[in-house]
């Protein structure tokens, strides 16, 4: 069981001055699994995501990634070109604000095709076909393929970002509050879309969210963080239905019932 872990982190520590962001954090992820990291603002969720994805180096501890061929490498010991290549091919990153990731002056098709071109695709027709197919996949009309993202709504932008990330069929996608800043009906549709895509394509996801409903809908497992520490971890239903730690109990109890 432990041998096919895709991502395993142990002993991660990181302090910003006197503020502990990560305190002896360990995390594991298996292929095809969706792991949600929940907690309030400032609990270290996004920091953990950045450390797991190699964007930020921890002060101690290591993050190991197992490639499809079984070789295990330390994400933070990797050379910059290797890490960037990994982010372009096997990995993907979905930002909370799609404007951070998208090129707003480039058409939707160009945005989706960028990762393909970065990987070396040099056939315009094929790239365009793939872009249109992925727009359909995220429920954006094919005739919007040449429109600039700035003409898109917030929900569409987020779906466009997901299409742009998934076009190279990554095995592992990091998502930072993918539904943040969207209204509830748009959120529901987006969650439905992500759940469908992730299940069908067998993508492993590390998802950061402060919204327990999002975690319940998408995640197989949940990690609860408080002040940089993982206070509870387990299967989603187990943690959310029968929280053991007082902080988790507080989080679960503070969800407003509609």
């Amino acid at each position: 069981m432990t041998d096919d872990r895709m991502l395993s982190a142990s002993g991660l520590n990181l302090r910003f001055g006197t503020v502990p962001a990560l305190v002896d954090v360990a995390a594991e992820l298996w292929p095809g699994e969706v792991l949600a990291i929940v907690g309030e603002s400032g609990s270290g969720k996004t920091t953990l995501l950045n450390v797991l994805s190699g964007h930020m180096a921890p002060q101690s501890g290591q993050v190991l990634y197992r490639a499809p061929d079984g070789t295990e490498t330390d994400v933070h010991a990797m050379s910059a070109p290797m890490l960037r290549a990994l982010h372009r091919s096997d990995w993907g990153f979905v930002h909370q604000n799609p404007r951070d990731a998208l090129r707003m002056g480039v058409s939707a098709g160009g945005n989706v095709g960028e990762r393909l071109m970065a990987q070396g695709s040099r056939h315009y027709g094929d790239i365009r076909e793939a872009a249109i197919a992925w727009l359909a996949e995220v429920e954006i009309d094919a005739d919007r393929v040449d429109d600039l993202p700035r003409t898109f709504s917030g929900g569409m932008l987020q779906r466009l970002q997901i299409a742009r990330t998934l076009v190279t069929h990554p095995r592992l996608v990091f998502m930072d509050e993918p539904t943040g800043g969207l209204d509830v009906s748009v959120q529901a549709r987006l969650l439905d879309l992500i759940r469908g895509l992730v299940a069908r394509l067998g993508i492993a996801v590390v998802l950061v969210t402060h919204d327990l409903a999002v975690a319940r809908l998408l995640a197989h497992r949940v990690m609860v963080m408080q002040r940089g520490e993982v206070v509870e971890t387990g299967l989603t239903d187990q943690v959310l239905d029968d929280p053991q730690h007082p902080y988790t109990q507080l989080l679960v109890a503070s969800v407003l019932a509609a």
Partner: peptide
């Protein structure tokens, strides 16, 4: 990493 230049040509 010259994919970006091709994005310009694509556009």
């Amino acid at each position: 990493e010259y994919g970006l230049m091709h994005v310009k040509l694509y556009e």
